[in-house]
Design a binder for these strands. Sequence first.
DNA 1: ACTGAAAGCCGAGCCTG
DNA 2: CAGGCTCGGCTTTCAGT
Lengths: 161, 161
Amino acid sequence: MELDQLDRDIIAALVDDARQTYADIGHQVGLSASAVKRRVDRLRETGAITGFSARVSPQALGWTTEAYVELFCQGKTKPSDIALAVTRFPEVVAAATITGEADALLHIRATDVRHVERVIERIAAMAFVVRTKSSIVLSRLVDTPPGAAVPEARNTSATPS
Amino acid sequence: MELDQLDRDIIAALVDDARQTYADIGHQVGLSASAVKRRVDRLRETGAITGFSARVSPQALGWTTEAYVELFCQGKTKPSDIALAVTRFPEVVAAATITGEADALLHIRATDVRHVERVIERIAAMAFVVRTKSSIVLSRLVDTPPGAAVPEARNTSATPS
DNA sequence: ACTGAAAGCCGAGCCTG
DNA sequence: CAGGCTCGGCTTTCAGT
């Protein structure tokens, strides 16, 4: 699946504001509305664009506290086991297996510090968990909606302007 | 700013699909289209909804590799210094100051492992950085678009079903 | 504060260059 | 593969309850 510069510009425009009209996007990228629509349709077909979502302010919804938790598991634990277990916690908004000492890293959103504590407590109680190591987020410095930047522009890679 | 259950249902619907018609949302939550629109307008005014964005598949755009990097900084380093510095890297999609040994945690998206290495190299070269500790993501287990769950439903908190 | 109707405008499909 | 056109339908607004 090849993406040219036009596709990337369209994606960037839609990440910025998914409710723009096709005509507006066309103006930005230099295409007509129908041409933009056909490209957007294709981008959705191919899976480059997976959907459209409202951006919400977590703190406005009451999620004022977040934490990162490293998970140390028993040797025989499968990644799918971890996935299955943590999916059940709505507070776990992200999770990944990682290299290094820990087996997995969880990203947790909660209403307050006490809430974080309760969640970690219950996660640590799971059978395959040996121990956890958690860090409370003091202040969020960056939170980029993914897709804002495009990797193919190699000059920007690892080269702060 | 108070959010009642209707507002939360509307937000959940818009997070799921930001391009639904107001009539559809109204059907789901039991309101007319115009009532839904006015509530959405208010939610945008108050900042609960910050915008609408296309969901893109990072790997479809070429971001196939991600990593988490712990930053250990000099004692006099201000969070704003870190923020300013890492914002310049498009690869840093998230950053936060945290409790614990490290001063900050960065979330990096790159095209491949080599790219990750280059970025970390340049981050480590910054004046205030004493050392870094990085973990490559092996597989992503969970990636929840934020706002899908609502904290006020206290029964679900820390209580996997 | 929600409902319902009227007017403007966008989106989807087809057809042409 | 991009552009232009048309109609159905959604968004928006306003009056009404």
